[in-house]
Computed example of a mutant assay.
Amino acid sequence: MSGSDEDHRPAADSAVRRAPPIALRQFVLKLHSRCDLACDHCYVYTMADQRWRDLPRTMSPRVLEATAGRIGDHARAHRLDRVSVVLHGGEPLLVGPARIEHAVSAIRQAVAPVPVRITVQTNGLQLTEAYLRLLDRLDVRISLSLDGDRDAHDRHRRGPDGRGSHDRVAAAIHRLTTGHPHLFNGLLCTIDLRNDPVDTYRRLLAHRPPAVDFLLPHGTWHTPPPARVPQPGSTPYADWLIAVFAHWYHQPGPPVRIRLFDEIIQVLLGGTSRVAGVGTSAVAVAVVQTDGAIEMDDTLAAAYDGAAHTGLHVLRDPFDTLLDLPAVRQQQAGLAALSATCRACDLGRVCGGGLRTHRWAADTGFDNPSVYCPDLYALINHIGGTVRRDLALLSGAAR
Rank of each mutant, 00 (worst) to 15 (best):
Y201H: 15
L204K: 04
R203Q: 15
N195I: 06
V212I: 15
S234E: 03
Q231Y: 06
T190C: 06
L215S: 04
A206H: 12
R194A: 15
R203I: 01
A227N: 12
F214N: 11
P210G: 12
T190N: 03
D196L: 11
H207Q: 09
P210Y: 01
L204R: 07
H222L: 10
W221A: 04
L215V: 06
D192R: 11
P217N: 05
P209Y: 08
G219D: 04
V198F: 10
P217W: 05
R228H: 09
P209A: 03
P236A: 12
P232L: 03
T235H: 14
L188F: 07
R202G: 08
L204C: 00
T235E: 07
L205W: 13
A227D: 09
Y201C: 07
T190I: 09
A227K: 08
T235Q: 14
P226A: 03
H207W: 04
P210K: 03
C189P: 02
S234F: 07
T200C: 15
P224S: 09
P232I: 08
P225D: 06
T200V: 09
G219W: 01
H222R: 12
P230D: 06
T235V: 14
P197G: 11
P236Y: 00
V229F: 04
G219C: 02
N195W: 13
A211P: 09
C189H: 04
R228K: 11
H207D: 07
R228D: 14
L187E: 00
V198H: 09
D239Q: 13
L187S: 02
N195S: 15
V212C: 08
H218V: 00
C189Q: 00
Y201L: 14
P232G: 01
P197R: 09
V198D: 11
D199P: 04
L205G: 10
W221P: 10
R208F: 08
L216C: 06
A227I: 03
R202K: 14
C189M: 02
H222W: 08
A238S: 14
A206T: 06
V198W: 11
A206E: 15
P224N: 07
T235S: 12
G186P: 05
D239E: 15
L216E: 05
A211H: 08
R203K: 15
F214I: 04
T190R: 01
L188Q: 01
L204Y: 09
L205F: 13
D199G: 11
P232F: 01
Q231K: 13
H222G: 10
H207K: 06
D239L: 11
L204P: 05
V198K: 09
R203P: 03
L205I: 13
L204S: 08
L205N: 11
